[in-house]
Simulated assay, not measured.
Amino acid sequence: MTTCVLAVHAGTTGVAAAAVDAAGTVRARGHHELAQHRPAAGQVEHAPDEIWQAVLGAVRGVLGHVDASGLGSVAITNQRDTVLLWDRETLGSPRPTVAGQDRRTTQVCAALREAGHEARVEELTGQGLEPGRAAPALAWLAEHEPRTWALVEEGRYAVGTVDSYLVARMTRGLEHVTDVSNAARTLLHDLEGGGWSGELCSLFGVPVDALPELVPSWGGAATTDPRAFLGLSLPVAALVADRSAAHLGLGCLDAGDASWDDAASSLLVTTDRRPVRTAQVLTTAAWRSPDGADTFALEVASGVDRSSEWLPGVREAAPELASLRVEDGVDDRLCHDLGERLGLDVRRASAPDATLRGAALLALRPR
């Protein structure tokens, strides 16, 4: 069998896994449902161990169809906003995650906004003060669960996004790493500086030492421990947030390339090696190459209905913009509407599973 990448996508309601060959063809798939828990109004959580068990279940589904000897590496992609805590030694978690859809931090964000911090947060991160991001969630935990937070400050508990938790589980706690596409959504990352911001960590009360090391999005960040990961000893060859993975899976590699995420109603436009600031549009880091260079993107999460507000800024920042790539299966009427409103040629992907394929193809890129 041709050597494949084992791609794992940890989403909000389930985990998908696939064996993907060098041509981007999916040879086998696995899937495992993941429960969302809603302990109170506006609160959305996952049980960390349920995430891990869902990963193992999805990977077992792949291994039921391919020989493990045909797998050459692992690529991890995940939804970006969920934040977790876990014990560095036991890997057990003291509490559920705070998921990206959670709105318990609305008052935290409002208080910071009223105190005049939003402009500085936007300057450093390219993002606004929004509920559902990691930094406000961690500030909420520090205030409402001080005993748990004390162990974060003491260094016993690690803090991270879903990818960093999965790497910790796969390596039996040996590695604590993440990539820039995940870090850029936390409100703790300095977009220009490229690392965790001491200023932002101080603002939100998060110890820098609790956060993962930032590593390139591909090129090898760790090796899985077979005792923890279904007998598999594989290099973790790619870490990338699912929005960036889907962008890559749709063939968006260069400046001006644009993709549409139907589930999130969002547009992503690559702007190459420079962060671009423009009104009505988020600026984010899309991925980091092994040489340390970041590729940036503009992200519009408000949908196409408000295109008249943000489209001029996007066109100024990315004058190469000419076409929009979408996954196969997006409604024909929506594709027509997108093309008409944005003045772009809409191109459908030639293959499904853009997120898994994008993560796998990233893992296959040269260092």
Score class of each variant (00 low, 15 high):
Gly70Met: 02
Thr82Pro: 13
Val83Asn: 05
Ser217Pro: 06
Thr106Ser: 14
Arg288Tyr: 10
Leu239Asp: 02
Ala19Gly: 02
Asp291Asn: 11
Pro94Glu: 10
Asp291Gln: 09
Ala210Cys: 13
Val55Trp: 07
Thr3Met: 03
Asp225Ala: 11
Trp287Ala: 04
His117Gln: 12
Thr295Val: 14
Arg273Gly: 03
Thr278Val: 15
Arg273Pro: 00
Ala54Ser: 15
Val180Ala: 15
Pro146Val: 14
Arg172Ala: 14
Asp163Leu: 00
Leu141Ala: 03
Gly193Pro: 08
Ser164Lys: 02
Asp49Lys: 02
Thr186Met: 03
Met1Val: 14
Ser217Cys: 10
Glu145Asn: 07
Asp190Arg: 05
Val281Tyr: 03
Glu299Asn: 09
Asp328Ile: 03
Gly30His: 07
Thr97Lys: 03
Ala54Lys: 05
Ser73Met: 13
Leu364Phe: 08
Glu154Trp: 00
Gln36Cys: 14
Thr25Tyr: 03
Val236Gln: 01
Glu33Met: 08
Glu153Lys: 11
Leu166Gly: 06
Val276Gly: 01
Gly126Lys: 01
Thr97Ala: 15
Leu324His: 09
Ser323Ile: 10
Trp140Ala: 02
Ala41His: 10
Gly220Lys: 01
Gly219Asp: 00
Val304Asp: 08
Asp242Pro: 12
Ala255Trp: 04
Ala75Cys: 13
Ala17Lys: 11
Val236Ile: 14
Gly195His: 06
Asp332Ala: 15
Trp218Glu: 10
Val59Thr: 09
Ala134His: 00
Ala137Ile: 07
Leu344Lys: 09
Leu112Ser: 02
Gln36Ser: 13
Arg325Met: 13
Leu250Lys: 01
Asp242Tyr: 11
Asp353Leu: 08
Ala351Gln: 14
Glu154Gln: 15
Asp272Glu: 14
Trp86Arg: 06
Val98Met: 10
Pro226Asn: 07
Ala245Leu: 12
Leu85Asp: 08
Leu253His: 15
Asp254Tyr: 09
His9Val: 01
Ala210Lys: 03
Arg27Leu: 15
Ala237Ser: 15
Asp190Ala: 13
Asp345Cys: 13
Val152Asn: 06
Leu91His: 04
Asp345Ala: 15
Gly198Trp: 04
Thr90Ile: 08
Glu192His: 12
Asp331Leu: 09
Pro48Ile: 06
Pro366Thr: 14
Arg306Lys: 11
Ala183Thr: 02
Thr178His: 03
Asp262Cys: 05
Thr171Gln: 09
Glu213Asp: 10
Leu56Glu: 13
Leu84Trp: 04
Asn78Asp: 08
His9Gln: 14
Pro319Cys: 07
Gly256Glu: 10
Ala301Tyr: 00
Gly193Phe: 06
Ser323Asn: 11
His189Asp: 00
Trp52Leu: 03
Asp353Tyr: 04
Thr125Gln: 07
Ala363Lys: 07
Gln280Met: 08
His37Lys: 04
Gly126Val: 12
Gly128Glu: 07
Pro136Tyr: 00
Leu362Tyr: 02
